[in-house]
Design a protein around this nucleic acid. Sequence first.
DNA 1: TTGACATATTACTAAATCGCGATATAGTTT
DNA 2: AAACTATATCGCGATTTAGTAATATGTCAA
Lengths: 120, 120
Amino acid sequence: MMKADNMAKQRKPGMSDAQIKEAARHFTILSEPARLKILRSLMAGPQTVTGLVGATGLKQGNVSKHLGVLYGARFVNREKEGTFARYSIADADLFTLCDLMCNRIERDAKTLAAVLQSRR
Amino acid sequence: MMKADNMAKQRKPGMSDAQIKEAARHFTILSEPARLKILRSLMAGPQTVTGLVGATGLKQGNVSKHLGVLYGARFVNREKEGTFARYSIADADLFTLCDLMCNRIERDAKTLAAVLQSRR
DNA sequence: TTGACATATTACTAAATCGCGATATAGTTT
DNA sequence: AAACTATATCGCGATTTAGTAATATGTCAA
């Protein structure tokens, strides 16, 4: 495996404050349980707002607002069909981002379990 | 390239609400410009708190608090050396997570630029 | 011990934002 | 047109959290 300081070398030089702020803003969008829940639902396939209300248990206004945020960041696509709005995942990187974070959590949980086990 | 609905199939079935909340909490930690700035500095190599104060322009108490948050989530390691505390990146996934988000932003910026261009 | 320095923590204020209920907008049907 | 449905938006109370200044804790050296 590559060492951390070698990996750092292949990183681009200084990001501007504006770029860092942008990145933070995008992470913020993924930092809400409600939005992650919506994204998880969409990962199974495109859905309408009403469909997502049913799938997530969130209120309609809430789902709509969150979808607006996700759409604003181009994380999801929107297609209007009559009175319906069909949303879908717009960015394949979302799968990677979510998987990385989820695996990390699982890994940490196992580590914690192992530590607790070794302390008996 | 694999289609989105096929990728969905290989995803694990329903995460619990608690797991989603955990994932959201971890994204929250990456959603602060100050913390990203600190992480970017650490990606160039381990640093002390004072070093990070210099590198980021943030106040000492602030840096220390943010490092506490990052350490709490095991995003960074801490080694005490006398009165110093040397922090370093603990999780190689951070490189991937940040790169994915940054590339995404760059890509979007280019797309936007292209759209503006085509409209003249 | 005392002084100097590195880091952590606390108390406070200000800003952001979530969920909710109500309402507005817009397309469809009768 | 009026009624109905799907979606978007508004205003509000409540919660969360960043930044700051001040202070506490801990370590080394003289």
